[in-house]
Amino acid sequence: MTPADLSRTVLHAVRRAVDEDALRAPVPARVRVERTRPGGSGDYACAVALQLAGHAALPAREVAALLRDRVVGAPGIGRVEITGPGFLNFTLDASAGAEARAARVREVLDAGLRYGRVTTEAGRLHRLHHPPEVRAAVLAQSVARLLRTQGGQVLVGCTEETDPRWEDLGVRVGLRYGAEESAGIRPVPARATAAALLDRLGRDAALWGLQRPAAHDHATLGDDLLVQGEPNPLFLVRYAHARARALLREGERFGLTAAYETDVDAPALHAALADHPGVLAAAALHHAPDRVARHLETVADAFFDFHATTPPLPVGDEKPSAAHRSRLALAEAAGKVLAGGLFVLGISAPPHL
């Protein structure tokens, strides 16, 4: 793990703590880590807890403990200690990091679309209600799916008569009850009907446009959602999934089967896969499907970087090897996470684009 990797890992921990409402402070643009000075503890030290303590209205050592809990066990980190007024000190462990990455990839492949699902909310019933408006109906449905990823049971109701065209967007509303009985889903309205959106954009693009912006922002429903290229994040997310599936099919021509046998140098992609369970939990807690959409963009970007710098398939005179099998396994894991996230948003993940 490089200092830049460690900095990103600590920054991920800060974001997780803020997303989970454990820490109320602004997320810094970057986190600085430095080599430990002579006589210090560990390989690297970081003072971010001291920087956040004032904003969070917490002692720096308490902030450091929150971050330590979210960094311990991360790939490449062997030990995390808190010293002095609230410094985080890291001892690196390359072998432990490789083992953790291998275990995570295998976990994703074993769990498939269910990777990141937990039973934390098992036995808890959530009641959601929304006004008779298409964006609210769509977000309520995705929030319900998110709560189910945490083990919860969910009932969704509309306060008034529903639009039958909502069903073409995957919305199922079988109940009617008022605000006093449930949690309200009230985003900024889309100012469009389900019929108009479906006719102009189709189901998947309409769902992405309704959910990608945060609920307090206006939905972006322009024709750019239909662009088959880089300017369209939805296309990139679905293309990354389709490309991962294509790599597996192409691997068969070389006699390659995905199997994570040797460590793959793709820190951004490994980090994105590791973040997925936390993203689902935070999105469920805050009723925010937009967090899932943004995370899928991160996974797709990391996948394409990995694909460009570490080709999963033999190139030129290369012979198929354990390294290629491992890269294929990582590509397959990325595809599983992308498909699972799209499912939460109600969007299809076709194997071909």
Rank of each mutant, 00 (worst) to 15 (best):
C46H: 01
A179D: 08
P164M: 02
L155E: 15
E332T: 00
A333C: 07
P320F: 11
H126G: 01
V188I: 10
A284T: 01
S41T: 15
G335T: 08
R148A: 10
S95V: 13
L201T: 07
L345T: 04
R35K: 14
T193W: 08
A268L: 14
R106C: 11
D204Y: 01
S326E: 10
Q228H: 11
A102E: 14
D21C: 10
A56C: 05
R186G: 02
A274P: 03
P231S: 02
A45W: 06
R114Q: 11
R212M: 09
A329L: 05
A53P: 01
V63P: 02
R68V: 01
A329D: 03
R165W: 11
A282D: 07
V33I: 09
A206I: 09
G86T: 09
P85Y: 03
H216F: 15
H324C: 11
A272M: 06
V264P: 01
A349V: 04
S321A: 15
V173K: 06
P59Q: 09
L234P: 07
S95Y: 06
Q141R: 13
G174P: 03
R172Q: 15
A4H: 14
V171R: 13
T83F: 00
G170R: 07
L147N: 00
V48E: 05
R15W: 06
Y260C: 00
E161A: 15
R200S: 12
G78R: 04
L234W: 05
T193S: 15
A57Q: 14
A102W: 00
E318D: 14
R253H: 11
R186V: 15
G157N: 08
D110Y: 08
V171Y: 12
G123Q: 06
R114M: 09
G112I: 06
H130S: 11
G341C: 05
L88S: 05
L147H: 10
G152H: 03
R176V: 00
T257R: 14
R145V: 01
P312F: 01
D19E: 14
M1T: 10
A329V: 05
V171M: 10
Q211N: 04
A102F: 00
E81Y: 07
L207N: 04
H130G: 05
L328D: 04
A272T: 11
A183K: 09
H286I: 01
A94R: 13
A308W: 03
V299K: 05
V105R: 02
P38C: 05
R70Q: 13
A190T: 10
L342I: 00
T257I: 10
I185G: 00
P164A: 03
H55V: 00
L125V: 13
A195G: 13
A102L: 09
D19P: 00
R148K: 08
R200D: 13
A47M: 11
T2R: 15
R106S: 13
G42P: 12
P231E: 03
V227S: 12
R101D: 15
L207Q: 01
E121W: 15
V105N: 01
D204F: 01
L330H: 08
R24N: 14
L256T: 03
V227R: 15
